Simulated scan of single mutants.
Amino acid sequence: MRLERRPHRPLVLVVLAPIVAIVAALLISGGLIALDGANVLDAYWQILVGAFGTRLGITETLTRATPLMLTGLAAAVAFRARLWNIGAEGQFYIGAIAVTAVASTLFAGWPPHLIIPASLAVGALGGMLLLLLPLALRLRFGVDEVVTSLLLNFIVILFVSMMIEGPLKDPLAFGWPQSVPVPTDAMLPKLVDRTRLHIGLVIALVAAIVIWLVQSRTVFGLQSRAAGLSPPAAIFAGVPLGRTLVVVACISGGLAGLAGAVEVIGVKGYVTTDLSPGYGYSGIIVAMLANLHPLGVIAAALFTAIMFVGSDSMSRALGVPSYIADVTVALSLLTMLISIFFTQYRIRR
Rank of each mutant, 00 (worst) to 15 (best):
P177T: 04
L292P: 13
G175T: 11
A299R: 12
T304G: 07
L302A: 10
L188I: 14
A301H: 01
A317M: 08
R80W: 01
F174N: 07
L258F: 10
W176I: 14
L125P: 05
I47N: 06
A173L: 10
A249L: 12
T100R: 06
P277Q: 08
T335M: 11
A325K: 14
V239K: 13
R6L: 11
L135F: 04
I116N: 00
I33R: 05
L205P: 03
E145Y: 00
L27E: 04
A75L: 00
G109Y: 10
T343G: 09
N291C: 15
A226I: 08
V248N: 03
E60A: 11
D326K: 15
A233T: 14
Y345M: 12
S29V: 00
G280Q: 01
T304Y: 12
S313C: 04
C250T: 08
G126R: 05
I22S: 03
I340P: 01
P181M: 04
A81T: 02
A21V: 01
P171T: 06
V99K: 15
A88T: 05
F236N: 15
S282I: 03
P134I: 00
L48M: 15
D326F: 09
K268E: 07
D42Q: 07
V327N: 02
G278S: 07
V49F: 13
V262Y: 06
G310F: 07
L48G: 00
V182H: 03
I203C: 05
G266P: 02
W45M: 01
P189R: 01
D36P: 06
A74H: 05
L150N: 10
A81E: 01
A301F: 04
S29Q: 13
K190M: 14
L292H: 10
A96R: 01
P171F: 09
Q344P: 09
G127A: 14
P10R: 03
D170N: 11
F52S: 04
S216R: 05
A207S: 11
I58M: 15
V327Y: 15
A118G: 00
A38I: 12
I199S: 10
F236A: 14
